[in-house]
């Protein structure tokens, strides 16, 4: 599991991989926070719950990451622990995190640009482009 930054002319992009869908989504969150250079206070711990039901995994991923972006801006929260409960057509996730202490770079949106979750030798991988 992991992520790498990849070249994109006008924006930021990540290659993300994980052995299963939950890991892939967690790595996507970690990668996005890394691009933003987001730091948190670690304590006190905050719990946040989110669920999404979309027609495909790509839409679910965009929905999940968009929620995290919303939380950085409006709740001033970033998360480091994720507990997914997958079901048909979506998932619920319980997240733990803490207040943001600093963010260096703003990501404005998660895009569907070339977004395709593929199966690989390592499990799953996806490229995500962020609008900045």
């Amino acid at each position: 599991m992991g992520f790498n930054e990849i070249k994109h002319t006008a924006d930021w992009a990540l290659l993300i991989w994980g052995e299963n869908i939950e890991t892939l989504f967690k790595e996507a969150a970690r990668g996005m926070y890394a691009l933003m250079s987001a730091q948190s206070s670690q304590t006190p711990r905050r719990i946040y719950e989110f669920s999404t039901y979309q027609t495909n995994l790509e839409s679910q991923l965009v929905s999940f990451l968009s929620e995290l972006l919303y939380c950085t801006e409006q709740e001033e929260l970033i998360f480091d622990s994720f507990y997914f409960k997958l079901s048909d057509g979506g998932f619920a996730v319980k997240m733990e995190g803490s207040n943001i202490t600093s963010i260096q770079r703003q990501i404005k949106a998660v895009t569907f640009h070339n977004l395709e979750i593929k199966q690989s030798n390592q499990g799953y991988q996806v490229e995500i482009v962020f609008d900045v």
Binding site: Q54, T55, N56, S59, V62, S63, S66, Y70, E73, K108, A109, V110, F112, D131
Partner: peptide
């Protein structure tokens, strides 16, 4: 700002279906 980005994101998600 964030308002316009959110509107675009919301409707792109909705228009997928």
């Amino acid at each position: 700002r964030g308002l316009g980005h959110q509107i675009c994101s919301d409707y792109v998600q909705e228009f997928q279906t």
